[in-house]
């Protein structure tokens, strides 16, 4: 099983970063797709930003971008009207046949 899937099963979202060129390997890979260098695995840096959202059966789903490299689709667990570019946190993740990503809005700090 891949490092990525193993991480998700423990509720951790890990990304591989290239030890040679620092590029983040996304989607998950065994090596850097830019320079074929080896990866160092670490936790994803939070928060991300909201790119787009819609709603199905009362459940909001969206695309969020992290570290300008990792774009993922998941469900927004809060009943709020999000705005594009807003800071979004990966609140939960898991893996059961397919990955599961759940997002929450990062509260504005004044």
């Amino acid at each position: 099983m891949s490092v990525f899937e193993t991480g998700l099963k423990k509720g951790r979202f890990v990304v591989g970063q290239c030890s040679k060129c620092q590029k983040i390997a996304w989607p998950p890979n065994d090596f850097c797709s830019g320079c074929f260098g080896s990866l160092l695995w670490r936790d994803l840096k939070q928060p991300g930003t909201l790119l787009e959202h819609s709603q199905k059966d009362g459940r909001k789903f969206c695309i969020v971008e992290f570290e300008r490299a990792v774009k993922i689709m998941g469900v927004l667990i809060e009943d709020v009207e999000p705005t594009i570019g807003q800071n979004i946190q990966l609140a939960n993740c898991g893996f059961d046949k397919s990955p599961r990503f759940e997002f929450s809005v990062v509260p504005e700090v004044n």
Binding site: E52, S54, S98, R100, F101
Partner: peptide
């Protein structure tokens, strides 16, 4: 995997 559990084409099309 970047689509998470939202595998059905309706999700990307809605985006």
């Amino acid at each position: 995997v970047s689509r998470g559990e939202l595998k059905h084409p309706i999700f990307w099309a809605s985006m």
